[in-house]
């Protein structure tokens, strides 16, 4: 119980509850079926990105290339499929995007494994390389007509929720299941495999990890491959749900995603954080982005609120870290 009270996750959860209640009290519209479905829908893409960002942060790195990676993988796949006039099932687009995501992730992985350069610098570089290839070599333009199966996947839903008072409807996309599946798999990987514990160990102390017998280079490399695949999936989902491929739509999302992950209690210095916290942090940001409109807060104030949230949220974890350090000093004295 004490442990729960001390965890960041618990406080993020409290903030989520508090904000929900405030919005409900002011608008009466928060706890309506269609709004909740809207939020779940809006969680899918940032949620997937956040899972990838969380894994990299835990390993002690930071990845800012995932939106560019996703855009390039999905743009290349869509371009190819549209050009050959593909009319088959959704499985091929998924397969292509997963392979491309893995390859581009491996590119990040090779650099971070063999160069002693901060991952921020490396991924800033690869982010530019990725978007450069997309915009230059592939000469990217908006693709407004997707292959039929991709369009259909974007419209496919699990159920439709209707707001009894306003009559507005929202549908729960099938892609939400992908978020759930990825979250469950990554939860298992991070908690119950030596690969996952190795990621934590490297984030804690890389030299100790090497001495303990972790294959640090292999772990880092495969980590970036996995993260590349997750990012590419998120990109494909965004494209299908928009019904068109907009090459620059995702770019710039990295800051918001990393903020969500840090808000959820993942230490920017590596080694700590949980998937629960990551999901709560993302939920918090999505609620603020999506639902403040319900209480009539103008868009630019949303940005202000988000910024404040990030400063306060990361500030709180910084204070916790300082407290811990002080305690440590007292203990060792």
């Amino acid at each position: 119980m004490k442990r729960i009270l001390r965890s960041t996750e618990f406080y993020v959860f409290l903030v989520v509850v508090a904000i929900s209640i405030i919005i409900q009290a002011r608008s009466g519209q928060f706890f309506t079926a269609n709004n909740l479905v809207d939020i779940a829908n809006a969680m899918v893409v940032p949620g997937l990105f956040a899972i990838g960002a969380y894994m990299v942060l835990v390993s002690g790195g930071i990845d800012v290339s995932f939106p560019a990676l996703a855009s390039l993988a999905v743009y290349a796949a869509t371009r190819f499929l549209v050009d050959i006039g593909y009319e088959g099932s959704i499985l091929l687009p998924f397969a292509i995007v997963i392979v491309l995501g893995a390859l581009l992730g491996a590119f990040n992985g090779l650099f971070t494994t063999f160069l002693v350069i901060p991952t921020l610098i490396i991924t800033l570089g690869t982010a530019n390389v990725f978007s450069g290839i997309m915009q230059g070599a592939l000469n990217s333009v908006q693709i407004s007509t997707l292959p039929p199966s991709m369009n259909a996947f974007g419209r496919a839903n699990l159920f439709v929720a209707t707001n009894p008072t306003s009559g507005l409807t929202s549908s729960m996309p099938v892609s939400f299941l992908i978020l759930v599946a990825v979250a469950v798999i990554i939860f298992f990987v991070m908690k119950f495999t030596m690969f996952g514990r190795g990621i934590y160990a490297i984030g804690g102390d890389e030299a100790s990890a090497i001495r303990a017998g972790f294959k640090v280079k292999a772990i880092k490399f495969w980590l970036y491959v996995v993260v590349g695949v997750i990012a590419a999936l998120a990109g494909l989902i965004r494209t299908t749900s928009m019904g068109q491929m907009h090459p620059t739509n995702l770019l710039g999302m990295e800051i918001m995603v990393i903020a969500a992950v840090v808000l959820g209690g993942v230490a920017i210095t590596g080694g700590t954080g949980s998937l629960t916290g990551v999901m709560l942090g993302t939920l918090l940001i999505v609620i603020v982005q999506n639902s403040m409109i319900l209480v009539g807060v103008p868009t630019y104030w949303q940005r202000f609120a988000l910024g404040t949230l990030i400063i306060v949220g990361t500030g709180v974890s910084a204070v916790q870290l300082m407290r811990r350090r002080t305690r440590q000093r007292l203990v060792s004295a």
Partner: peptide, 28 residues
């Protein structure tokens, strides 16, 4: 001198990880 430990992990994990690695285990 630095004890080769993982400050971010629990005492339990610090004690068991090396042993499990030397046994070649993949799952926790």
């Amino acid at each position: 001198q630095d004890f080769s430990i993982f400050p971010n992990l629990s005492v339990m994990e610090n004690l068991a990880l090396n042993h499990e690695l030397s046994q070649g285990r993949k799952l926790v």
